[in-house]
Amino acid sequence: MRENKSAVLNRFFSRNTFRDIIDSTDDEIYKSVILRYVKNPENKKNVELISEIYTELKKNYRNEYYYKNTLLNKLLLGVHSINTTVALTEIPISKSKADFVLINGKAIAYEIKTELDNLDRLENQINDYYKAFDHVSVITCKENLALLENKLEIINKPIGIYVLQNNGSLSIIQKPLKYSDSLDKNIIFKILRKSEYESIIMQVYGELPQVTQFKYYSECLNLFLKVDLDKVYELFIAQLKKRTKVEKELYQNVPYELKFLTYFMDLKEADYSRLNSFLYNQFGGM
């Protein structure tokens, strides 16, 4: 029963579900979740229904989406500003994926450990993150805090610790400090897209390699590896900061519950208009 519940709630707050809604205002997962968790949904607007489903997450099933959405709302939109700070998600780093990365004056990679997770892979994940970022934090629940602190003591790096409290507030237990000893230019290069590492090479050398297509990637890598690590890291972060494009004025009107989701959907003006129409229409799933 719990597995079925987790699967359907995880799929509710997903890009696929809301892309279907934006494109056609018709999605079976959306309908099934509303009918399952909300009484008399036909008398309510979709924005109200989404809020009720999100409350279900907060009270009974604080999944990864709930944590990510809280991080984005509290840190990107609360502490920082969408005008000066960029968020990224699911960044592949070696054998791991960073759940959330926040880039302002510095870049911080966040690993999320919800009540539904264990800490078995944490050490490997943290060590991977430090290959690409010089600030790393872990966010978890208060029930996991003691175990997390024991784990981090073994890792012995200046890792930040955040706790997502039961009321939805975010507590800072320990701020992350800079640690760059593990930065790896090979790993950093693999994170970059072709246009991004080409931009870095152009900035450093003023031209791109004049070699066959077969040798092009390896030659770009060779040139990249010759650049001083501090310079590489600076240019790497600058490229990542360009990745996310958001229609800032339109994004401000998105409900709290959908902030994380819509931030990473690359929505255009017409998409926001269709989403807004859907949100303030009554439920049509009956």
Rank of each mutant, 00 (worst) to 15 (best):
N10A: 05
R19Q: 13
D27I: 01
E28W: 03
Y30Q: 03
I34F: 01
V38L: 01
V38N: 01
N40G: 11
N40W: 05
N40T: 07
N40C: 02
E42Y: 06
K44D: 00
N46M: 09
T55L: 11
E56S: 08
K68D: 09
N73A: 08
L75R: 11
L77Y: 00
S81C: 00
T85V: 06
V86C: 13
T89I: 01
S96I: 03
D99I: 02
V101L: 04
L102W: 03
I103H: 13
N104E: 14
N104C: 11
Y110M: 09
E111G: 09
I112S: 10
T114G: 09
E115L: 09
E123D: 13
N127T: 04
K131Y: 01
F133I: 05
E143I: 12
A146F: 11
A146Y: 11
L147P: 00
N150Y: 08
K151H: 12
K151E: 14
I154V: 15
Y162M: 11
N166M: 05
N166A: 13
L170K: 03
Q174S: 12
K175P: 02
L177R: 15
K178P: 01
S180P: 00
S182L: 13
D184S: 12
I188A: 10
F189W: 10
R193N: 10
S195D: 14
S195T: 12
E198L: 07
I200M: 05
I201Y: 00
V204P: 08
P209Q: 10
L221D: 04
L225H: 06
V232R: 10
Y233Q: 07
Y233M: 10
F236C: 11
A238K: 15
L240R: 11
K241R: 15
K241E: 13
K245V: 14
V246L: 06
Q252Y: 12
Q252E: 15
Y256G: 05
K259C: 02
K259N: 10
T262F: 12
L267R: 06
N276S: 15
Y280P: 14
N281V: 00
F283D: 03
F283Y: 14
M286I: 10
